[in-house]
Amino acid sequence: MTVSRIAMLVGLVILIALPAVVPPYFLHLLIQILLWAFIYTAWALMGRFGFVSFGHGAFMGVGAYVPALLWTYYDVTPWIGIPLGIAFSMLLALVIGYPCFRLRVVGHYFALVTLALSQVVLLSLVAARDITGGSLGFTQKAVGHSWYALQFPEKSYFYGISIVVWLIGLYVWQRIDRSINREALEAISEDEDAAAAIGIDVLREKLRVTVISAALTALGGAIYAQYMMYLNPETVSGIAVSLQIVFAVIAGGVYSMLGPTVGSLLTLSLTEGLRVWFGTNFIGAANTIYGILLILCIIFMPQGIVGALKGLRFRLQHTKVAAPAE
């Protein structure tokens, strides 16, 4: 345990020291990896219990657009805008989650209801084209370096911010992982009726984890919007984003703390690597390979990459222990 803790500390120190040595392009990539890793971790909070939501594009979209619109049109600082966006997203999660869990909308049906939610948010953003610019997107009002507007032309600031939010994501994951609620949620994902019969408040447990997940996703969307400055409905909401979230987590592994992070690292490096490799002549190449990998992952490694590695380590240890006994 102490060895792994030291390894974690060393890793963190290296991560913090990176901006001093890597060129801006890699820093840009790292910021995106960390921000998406945070959002993926937020999704995995629910996903690991089998509550597969395709609605996280909606939460991210709300979290990104509310502070950006408030700042650009009403000069409201993101320090107020971001909490408002998060609150709105939590409200959305409650409005959808409460009836869903109350009426036992589970499995396929839950996935499809949340899918409809992402479409509602996406299409509403496009429909409000007078203020959001519709499908063309819009650029936030820029003021240069400012803590008040949460805008920094230097990438290192956002790098620091994304490390902090990523660590918050991991912390929340671990808090839930070590709490009694995890046991309750696991029981619910196995069998809701049996869980209710032994006194678990099914509705409350599911609602709580959904609202936490939505809030973190909205925060991720907000930081992403502050960093990119340019917002487009297609890149922060809708089915495409929801599917991207689900697939990256599945590829990395939904059952372990670092699985979503590995998923983010892998998918983004793959996309960037293939983009650099093929150039812009082959726009679809990266996603084509990505699509094939996803299908293969689901067929051969439903536990994800981290899960598969863990299984391998377990088997290795198991054979080591078993060998002397023979």
Binding site: L243, A285, N287, L294
Partner: peptide, 21 residues
């Protein structure tokens, strides 16, 4: 069931991007 949904979702990704390519 959810893995089946995701496998055909991977197909969606593949078909759209392969057509783009």
């Amino acid at each position: 069931p959810i893995n089946q949904l995701l496998a055909t979702g991977g197909l969606l990704f593949f078909l759209q991007s392969f057509a783009t390519l």
